[in-house]
Design a protein around this nucleic acid. Structure first.
Lengths: 139, 139
DNA sequence: TTACAATTATTGTAGCTACAAATGTATGCA
DNA sequence: TGCATACATTTGTAGCTACAATAATTGTAA
C-alpha cells in the first residue's frame, strides 16, 4: 500500500533527522526545539517577539513554547519581559549569550545537514521539498 | 540552502503526520507508538516476540519499548511472560482484545493515510518513498 | 460601571523520547 | 566452584509533545 509507505517513511525519516540533530546539539546543551526558538528570535533582528508569533513560526503549541522559552531563560540565552502596551503579552528576545551560542552552532549544524542529505543530489533535494510541501498543502 | 530545506521539511512533515495520526487514534485510547507495537505483534502471527525484536522493527529504543508494552499490558491489549528458555528475555504477544481493537482501527487509519496523501498521485508517493529511502541510506 | 467574553500565557497531567544506571540472568573460564 | 563479563530488560532523569484547566488582562455591551 503506497499510501501507508509514504506516511510511514515520512514519519521515520523525520524522527531520524530529529534524533541526529539532537545528538549534534547535545554538546551545546540545547535541544533542536530550543535551537529553533533561538533561530527564530535571531531572525527578528533585535525586534522583540511574543509567544504567539514564535509559535506560529514553529508549528508547535504555545503551551510548549512557553516551557521552551523558560529553559532558554534559565540558561541566559533569551530574555522575557512583560509587554507594557498589553500586559497579557510577553516580549521575548535573544541575549548576546544566545547570539554567541548560535554562532558556534551554525557551522556544526550546517555540516550535519549536509551529511544527512549527502546521498541526494541538489535536484533530488528540491524534488523532496516540493513533494513534501505538496503533501502538506492538504487543507 | 536546499540542504536545510530538505532537512527541515522532512522533520516538519513527519511531525504533522505523527500529530494527525495521534489525533485519529486518541478515540481508541492508544497512541501511534502503541498502535505500531500492536501492529508488529499482529504481524508475528501468533508467534511470541521479545522486546529486542520488537524494537528492531520500530527504530526506537528498547527503553521505551519496555514502557510502551507496559501500557499495552495495563490495557489488556498484550501479554508479557518471562521466557522459560532464557529468563532474561520476555515473551510478548497480542491478546484477543488487542486483535479486536486493531480490527476496529484498521479502516480508520487507512482512511487517514489516504487523506494525508491525497494531494499526491501514486507516482509521486513512490517518488517520495524512494527519495526518503535514499536519504536514509546514509551509512 | 459592571458583567461577560475574548485574548494571552502558564500550569497540570499523561504519554513520548534519549541516555545512563541499575537489576537480574546466563555464560565462559580459571 | 567462583567470578568477571555479556546479555536482556527495567528504571531514573530530564526534555519533548498534546490537551485541558487556570489565571490574568483587555475589550465590549448593557
Amino acid at each position: 500500500m503506497i499510501n501507508r509507505q509514504a506516511v510511514v517513511q515520512t514519519m521515520q525519516s523525520g524522527n531520524i533527522i530529529t534524533e541526529q540533530l539532537n545528538g549534534t546539539l547535545i554538546a551545546f546543551g540545547i535541544s533542536i526545539q530550543q535551537f529553533n526558538v533561538l533561530r527564530i528570535l535571531r531572525g527578528r533582528n533585535g525586534k522583540v517577539a511574543n509567544l504567539e508569533s514564535i509559535t506560529s513560526d514553529m508549528i508547535h503549541r504555545m503551551s510548549n513554547t512557553s516551557r521552551l522559552v523558560n529553559r532558554l531563560v534559565e540558561k541566559g540565552l533569551c530574555k522575557r519581559v512583560i509587554c507594557q502596551q498589553n500586559r497579557r503579552k510577553v516580549d521575548i528576545s535573544i541575549t548576546d549569550a544566545g547570539l554567541d551560542l548560535l554562532r558556534q552552532i551554525d557551522p556544526v549544524v550546517e555540516q550535519k545537514e549536509a551529511e544527512l542529505t549527502q546521498k541526494l543530489t541538489k535536484k533530488e533535494m528540491s524534488q523532496l521539498v516540493s513533494l513534501l510541501t505538496k503533501m502538506k498543502s492538504n487543507n
